[in-house]
Design a protein around this nucleic acid. Sequence first.
DNA 1: CGCAAGATTGAAACGTATCAAGTTGGGTGG
DNA 2: CCACCCAACTTGATACGTTTCAATCTTGCG
Lengths: 260, 260
Amino acid sequence: MAPWRAMSDPIPLDLAHLRKSCAHCSLQQLCLPAGIDADELRRLDEIVKLRRPTQRNERLFRIADPLVSLYIARDGAFKTVSISEQGEEQIVGFHLPGELIGLDALGQGVHRCEAIALTNANVCEVPLAQLTSVAAQLPRLQQQLLRVIGQGMGLDQDHLNMLVKRQANERIALFLHGLGERYQLIGQSALQFKLPMSREDIANYLGLALETVSRGFTRLQEDGVISVHGRLIGISDRPHLNRLAHVEEPAATPLRRIGG
Amino acid sequence: MAPWRAMSDPIPLDLAHLRKSCAHCSLQQLCLPAGIDADELRRLDEIVKLRRPTQRNERLFRIADPLVSLYIARDGAFKTVSISEQGEEQIVGFHLPGELIGLDALGQGVHRCEAIALTNANVCEVPLAQLTSVAAQLPRLQQQLLRVIGQGMGLDQDHLNMLVKRQANERIALFLHGLGERYQLIGQSALQFKLPMSREDIANYLGLALETVSRGFTRLQEDGVISVHGRLIGISDRPHLNRLAHVEEPAATPLRRIGG
DNA sequence: CGCAAGATTGAAACGTATCAAGTTGGGTGG
DNA sequence: CCACCCAACTTGATACGTTTCAATCTTGCG
């Protein structure tokens, strides 16, 4: 595949930032520690490892790997991919910073997906055995763990609802809408962002042909809803986009993500 | 809708059977208690309630109900249904005996689905607060709980893979295949069973028009793969069905379900 | 500059949804 | 017991959207 380390891509490694504990992490409230107190946070911090920077196309785990840790990106983006019996790849979810990666293995103790970096990234690693044993002692952490897992299931359901009985343009609008919301959640612009994934990845995720995604983007641009420059997306008419996605648009948009 | 209690449907209530604890339940190894020891089983048994028999079309919980308990059918069948922003129903999963119901609410503490009985049924109820507090003390139960939850997520993924990039006949074959396996798992015939759900439910679940499901059944019957008499399904040529579903068919079929 | 991968655009073929009749079977009431 | 009814299911004809195949265009990168 692609080289693990592209020469033109010097790693902007900020050790000081990497060493920060959960307590100082800007994602704290969006991540596993959300809602737990200072003492508990210290216990959690003790078991969280900081991995070396991850290169584009690098894998956190592969299919059939035993479940060891859960992962969370601090920055960058990942996709999780399952492979059908016929060898076709299916993207199960996209993961932005703060979103737990690795829950696919909870059932069998063995991963059924690969987690592949879409960009260079920095990742926290949480050994599951330690996490569960700490959680057994800290009811609030246990509760939060279940909540995070449950949210993951909710996202799978959102993904499913996006695929069933919705046609191409609706899926694409919903995808862009959700992505914008997720970027907003982590403090970036909901109206202008760079897609970390290819058209092919989007198509795969949405259950469409990549040509259909391309046509969809073009159509949205012609209609003045978005602007497209390669992977750079600008949302020009958010209400219109929401209408196409059939999403209500009250002031406070409910917590929602697209990729699980 | 249909009457809560049809006159022609006297409830064959077997109190002796209902009073059985998990320890004596035939589903024990397929259910929450799988793999935990006798002491732990006793602790679990203490918190499991047996609900009065549930009528066809009765709901275990509704959308927006707070999460109180998880449910498991001892017999009968359920569907869980979510409702989109436009008011369209989407069937998220079918639940046969031994399969946990109610995990949809883990994320927000509030149900995002309704659980509706497809048939008359007997149901065990497990209050979640008690379950988690017991699980915190019993590592094996904690582990088993996570495993069951993880399996639920796995099933959602199977459902998703069934919908994406597969065409109608393949989805239908896969659906029947999976249903057969699940019946086999609970000690019934994999080759002959009565569908607990309507064609409309199947179509909704598979993301198809109900006419397409009907045609699919007819086609499978014409090809000598199955026999259809209303809701009675016989599988005449299992290898052929598996081939249509693109499922490998080694001697030992992997643990798999269709509805999550 | 020039290649290769990714993205866009076009035309035709296919599969499924939709609309519209029929058909079957279980339940009800005369 | 039969006629009727209604809901569930089946079957047929047409319309639509998406896939597919193919060609062209763009972009990043060596």
